[in-house]
Design a protein around this nucleic acid. Structure first.
Lengths: 211, 211, 211, 211
DNA sequence: TATGAATGAGCGTTCATTCAT
DNA sequence: CATGAATGAACGCTCATTCAT
């Protein structure tokens, strides 16, 4: 399965104000189509038409369709990352594990409530084969999480793995809830449950051993 | 988003043995293409060619492409379900929570190791829009889990939600590990961690309350 | 400059009578467009439309545009080859060099008169990069020429090269005349000249040496 | 002072001088692309980018793509012509036919060896439909050839046609050899053969008649 | 019934060329 | 004037699906 590198010759970055608008229109149209129509309708022609720009203009700024998807993901990840960043720095040095966890989980859930459509679309519609590793944003995020939660860990043999498990499961669960049980997002139950899930996982009474 | 009815009944009940073989050939070819080539190569023509059946024959047994995907997922889910069924019945009445959890998680992990390609393909390649809710198989499974783990629960306000959380997170985590850290599957660490994650989540020392 | 092999997976050969007609229609339409419109108008869509077949049908029998060009050339070369074959076998064993040469050149010229449009189109319109080596037909032809003319050669150091030179120059000259001086084809002058050109080249009075 | 002159320059001369540079850059870029990439990559945008000039500037000096091709051919033809000019004037009045022919053919071959890439590109990549008749350069050249070789002709009924035949066939053969048998260019065999071909064609023992 | 042939709709992408600043 | 941005018109090609034998 040969894949063309997504980051090939990224077409000219817009230098004039005019083209900045064009690029924004394309991104906006892409977002709209992905969220409202889905991946099947996510065609370059449709995007250009919805953006009100010529298809060739689209290709002047994005070398191919994948690049649009990548940009979408990049922007989405950056948004999330920024916000998390701020909050993490605020809460990291104060409070109990439960308090910190509550804040973190609450924040994640809130973040997902804000733009659930985009989030869902990026996560659900884009074929996983096209997903950029997001490693930059993700790994940075995990480092922050690690630093914020490490002080509370007890008997955790592999803190980095624990953080990995937490972030992956939290993301997955919230996404699943968005899709399958959206009403749960409106209460606090889901936050409570996730805090409960992770609290004792990090503060283990004794080392976990197989009997 | 208008969707064409996905789950029309398969046009023809394979009453004869020949039909059964044809359908199997199609399913087998579909599986091969999905795992070895990916969703992009998953075209009805390609499937028919690989299956050695005429494209029209394919459409005699499957009303459209989605039906093939649905059948694939159905078979895959059924396979998993069956196995889980058996094991769950074996272990449900004996041992401690940790033992039961260990067995369950170990089993899930093992199951994923056996056919990771198919699993990954069904999970990663098929656009989520096409994913049948799998509610039949899944909900049955969750009932089994619920029955197996309920006796151990302490201070769990919503057992059904807890099971939901466990199954969703476990699936997600294992899938993530298959994709991003496949080497972890070879050791027992991941099982240990998941057991640790769920053990105290189900046997909570005291009711979880926000301070 | 990477080239994709032209002879990749040549699509299904037509087995039914119906598709034979389709292929013929495509070839005929291709010929028409190439001769009457030129390379610039030689698009697969135009060919299909002119042929009265669906564009997809075209691609059912030709893997890509190059394959159509190749088929065109193949058929054209085969036609020429066949005729030359026959005539060469007739004249090879009788007459003087001048007579044989006259027949050969006359035949080539006549052949070009018959289908000058196709010939010109294949030779002039198709970018040389797409020209198949034609080695099969051409080399066979040259072998025939060699056998027919070798008995007459005197003091020719490299008969095979001489044949190469003769065929290449004859082709080129006639093509040039078709394009630039078509009226010359109507008289016998051009035949006379070519015979004169080749006659003494093959029957050299003495070995050619540099003084 | 220098400032004034500079201003003057930048108003008048330099604009012409600049234009020249721009045109040269375009021509140079065109040559590069045609030789190194081929006709398929020969797009106005690519040319402008490679030349380091804006696409609109390109269209300020060339009304369309064809004009670039024409200029390319014109310059190439002029180059060849110039050189031939000089040599022809040198050799025309001395030596035997064989000597003159040898010099001429040798010169043509050498000329092709020098810039075979450009030559080949202009000849092979440009669709023949776009080829300018080159009549200016070519006909001038042929006149020179005619004057140089006419004194040696014996029993040649149509000297002008003979020259036409010689130039066309020589060009074609050498081009063919560049493409198909480039190794032949390294020896003298090809020169010898061409001289042999033309020598007796021009000095015919007796008038050529059909029996 | 099983098969080869057919097809409409559309996709991603390009390019020669022109506008507008 | 020079430049970045814009654009219309295609182009090569695919695919899910249906027809006709």
């Amino acid at each position: 399965m040969s894949r063309i590198s997504t980051t090939q010759k990224s077409r000219k970055m817009p230098s004039q104000e005019r083209s900045r608008l064009t690029v924004d229109a394309i991104i906006q149209a892409s977002t709209y189509i992905l969220t409202e129509v889905g991946w099947k309708g996510f065609t370059t022609n449709a995007i250009a038409e919805r953006a009100g720009v010529n298809i060739s203009s689209l290709y002047q700024f994005f070398p191919n369709k994948e690049a649009i998807v990548a940009e979408l993901q990049k922007r989405h990840a950056a948004e999330m990352s920024d916000e998390l960043h701020k909050i993490l720095q605020l809460v990291s040095l104060q409070g109990s594990l439960k308090q910190v966890l509550t804040l973190l989980v609450h924040m994640i859930v809130e973040k997902h409530k804000v733009a659930p459509a985009v989030h869902k679309a990026v996560l659900e519609e884009v074929p996983l084969t096209l997903k950029t590793s997001c490693s930059d944003a993700d790994s940075q995020l995990r480092i922050l999480f690690l630093e914020a939660l490490k002080p509370f860990m007890q008997n955790v043999p592999n803190p980095e793995l624990a953080i990995h498990i937490i972030t992956v499961t939290a993301q997955a669960l919230i996404n699943n809830i968005i899709v399958e049980r959206p009403k749960l997002l409106q209460g606090t139950e889901i936050v409570t449950e996730l805090v409960a899930l992770y609290e004792y996982y990090l503060e283990r009474p004794t080392a976990t051993t197989l009997p």
